[in-house]
Each structure stands twice: as C-alpha cells, then as structure tokens.
Design a protein around this nucleic acid. Structure first.
Lengths: 234, 234
DNA sequence: TATCGAATTTAACCATGGTTAAATCTTACC
DNA sequence: GGTAAGATTTAACCATGGTTAAATTCGATA
C-alpha cells in the first residue's frame, strides 16, 4: 500500500527535471532524453533513469524511446518552481538592488529553499508582480500562467516602432550588453534598417545601434500603436 | 594526488554537522557521537561515519571513542554558516516582517542556499547588524565572534533590575509566550520575588508575571546600572 | 524493405548520507 | 582489578543521483 503524498516531498533534482521538461516542452513536445540531458548538463543515461522514476511518480508520462510529457501534477510542480524562481528574481531586483543579469543564478539556488510563507510574503511586498525582471510572466499561486509568444526584435521590419516586453534570461553577457545600450524592459525602439546579414540598425533614445542576431533574437517586442509611436522617423 | 580545495565545496550535510559540533562544543568539548546524533536527529552510526569523513577533510580532529573538536578550518566554516543563519534571521525579521519565533526555521533552509554576494547585500541593507532577532551575536565576515556568557533570568535574585539581552531561539512556543508577555529584546524587568520551585514573579512594564523554569532559563539578561534602574521598587 | 547511424536504454559502477543489528571499547563500580 | 552497562564503532544494507561502456531500438535512406 502506497501512502498518498498530498504535501510537498519532491527533491531538488526532481524539481529541476520538471522545470527543464516544462521549458523544453514549450519548444518541442514530447521532450527527448538528449534535449533534457543537455539542458541539465548530465548524461543521457542519467536522464533516462530519472524519466522512468518521474513516470513512476505520475509526474510525467514517458514512453521509452519516444520522450516525455508532463502530467497535470508534474506541470503543477514545475509552475510552482518557476513561480518561486521569478518571484525571487523580482525580489532580488526590486528590493535588493540586483542587476537583471545577476538574478537568475541566485534565484536558481533559492527557489528550492523557500517556504510557501516566504513566497507569499515577497509576493505581497512586491505588490503581486506579474513578471520577473526579464519580462517573463510569473505563474499565479493557483497555477495559472498566461505565456504569450511575442515576436523578436530580429523579426522586425525597417520602419517598425516597437517596445521591449521581454528578454531571454539565459546569457548574462547579453543582458549586460542590453544594459549598456540602455535597452531595458519597456524601452521604445525604432528599427531604421535591416541589413543583408540579418543585423539591424535601431534607434534607442535617439542613439543608433547596430544589433546582431544573438542580441536581436533575445529581445521580444510588441509593435507600438499609432498613437504611441512618435511621428518623426515613421 | 588530491586537488587542493581552496573554494567552498562543502555539502549541506557537512555544514550542518560543523554547525552542530560548534554549538555543542561551547557546552562540552570534545563533542560526543551521541550528543551530535541527538542534535541532528540521526543515528549514532551515521554520526560516527561522518565524523571519520570530517576528520579526513581536516575539518575536525576526531579520536574514535573520545569525540571530536573543530579544527580552525572547520570552525571557520561553522562560523560562516552561523553568520548566514543569523543575518538571514535578522533580514526576515527587519525587512520582511517575520516574527522572531518564525525566523529560525526559514533561515535553516536558506543558510545553505545564499551566495557571498547575497550575504554582503543583506548585511549592508541591515546596516551591519551585530545580533540576530534573538540577540545572538553575528560572526563577522572575517570569522571573529564575540560570544559572552550572560546570566539567565532564572539566576536572578529578588530585587534585581535587569534587561533582556538574548533569548534561546530553539523553542517557538517559548518565544511566542515571551511576545505575549511583552518581553522582547532590551525589555527592562524587575524581579520582585523568587519562589521555592525556582519560579519568579517579575514586573514587565508595571504588570506582574509568574515565570517558570523553561521560560526563565531561556532568557539571558544583564543587570541594570544604578542610574538606569527606576528608583521605585528597588 | 533492409540497413546503418544516431538516439536511447541497460548494465555495472561510484559517492553521499542515511538505516538497523552486531561487535567492541570505555568506564564506573563492586 | 574484573565486570557489566552504556557508548561507540563496524558491517551489511538502502535510496538517490550521478558516471561510462555496451547493447538495443528507431527511422531515414538506398
């Protein structure tokens, strides 16, 4: 007879796997063993073993040789971990003065250590924020997450007026580069030119910048409406 | 050939053991296997195995059947963990509104997860505090700790005017009891009577309280000087 | 449709940190 | 100074989460 596990009893490793599967799933589902192994920096053999284990726990459904998908229970835990991560990031940034390229690493460790009490307190102290410092939406405590796919800066055409809504949080060097160019969340940008190598010339606060693929693919934007866009340049 | 390990590479378990040994050592040195096992809530066999391991790492000096003492290296790590713990407690209390009976449990988990960066930031944000919310001194970043032995409230005589300087942080129920009686850090107390069962009648802000051993032994005090003590009651 | 290369799983192994039960050491007491 | 009780260590075991190397499966292509 197996005891019904209503409370939290998941190890840090399990949480890391579920989070990784969740994120990979949004790109391609089902998630392959090798994609998971690469994301977590472990061997494919280790991933296989854990996939079997997670399947046994009913946190994923895993078909050998054909990858895995989260179950509702697994998704719930993944979203809780992501909620912790992004709330902590926002707290580090807003309340403790961390730069946006430093918050991810610190949150990575803290996300497994905080209590529900701690989560609720920082949520309240921050005024129930809807995104992390990179613009990623924070899952709600009830597990609801609205995660819309935005266009990248690299997909913009010359003449577009856009606003930065979200940036990829993975590479601190890219984030520092954006900071240096004054390109923060909600910064308005005018795309003045597309070049043959897919690089762009953009205007940020009147200053022209040449941005290449690794940057332009890391910045997600929304088009400015007619009344928001300055009349000149258009 | 063993690689020289200059940076931090201690597991959470090692940190917990060193912290426990440090605290037990202040009561009786060397620390016995059974005392350690009891403090950590594990079997004596597990403690023995870890003691051998810690001795091999040169973090303690351990003589089988005769207990263990921290080496300088071990003490340094123990003090770092304790510094983390008490700084976090103070942060939870001052910056996040935690009550003093709630901070220990939360800090217990966070102390192993924070970076040196995080430690430095909360230290600065708090204005370099010297104690945790229970009055325990916070080890300095360079490893120096001044930890003086104070008398307990239970050791006071009738007629004493004293001030609460420190409380045992172990039992949340005791802490909540103290809160209810308005007995916080730096509260002034007049000891009006000692009774035959070692309980005391004390005056807190003019209100009489009967305090029994478990409470009076958990409160550390310093005598008020003549000019600090109110003239009446004395 | 057979085959070959890549992806995946299995097998054997390791370290950490725990368990219980049995053996052994210490020490206090007669 | 011998002995028995209690403390401690050893031995055998377990779970978790990793590793590398060998075997197996999948699926694209000839």
């Amino acid at each position: 007879m197996v005891k019904f596990d209503s409370g939290r009893a998941t190890s840090q490793a399990v949480e890391d796997y579920l989070k990784a599967i969740y994120k990979l799933q949004s790109v391609t589902a089902p998630v392959t063993t090798s994609a998971l192994a690469e994301k977590l920096g472990i061997s494919a053999a280790a991933a296989t073993k854990m996939l079997k284990q997670l399947d046994g726990m009913r946190l994923i459904s895993y078909v050998p040789y054909h990858g895995a998908n989260l179950t509702d229970a697994g998704r719930r835990i993944a979203l809780e971990v992501i909620r912790h991560h992004r709330l902590i990031e926002q707290y580090l940034h807003q309340a403790m003065g961390y730069a946006w390229d430093q918050v991810d690493a610190e949150a990575e460790k803290l996300e497994h250590a905080i209590s529900e009490e701690f989560e609720a307190r920082i949520d309240e102290l921050l005024g129930y924020p809807e995104t992390c410092p990179h613009g990623d939406p924070i899952p709600r405590a009830d597990g609801v997450l609205v995660d819309e796919r935005l266009q990248t800066l690299g997909e913009c055409a010359a003449g577009d007026w856009v606003r930065i809504e979200r940036v990829r949080d993975t590479d601190p060097a890219v984030l520092r580069d954006l900071t240096q160019r004054q390109m923060g969340l909600h910064t308005q940008i005018f795309v003045s030119d597309r070049h043959s190598d897919n690089s762009l010339t953009i205007l940020v606060a009147g200053t022209p910048h040449l941005v290449h693929e690794p940057i332009s693919a890391s910045v997600f934007v929304t088009p400015l409406t007619a009344d928001q866009a300055p009349a000149n340049h258009g």
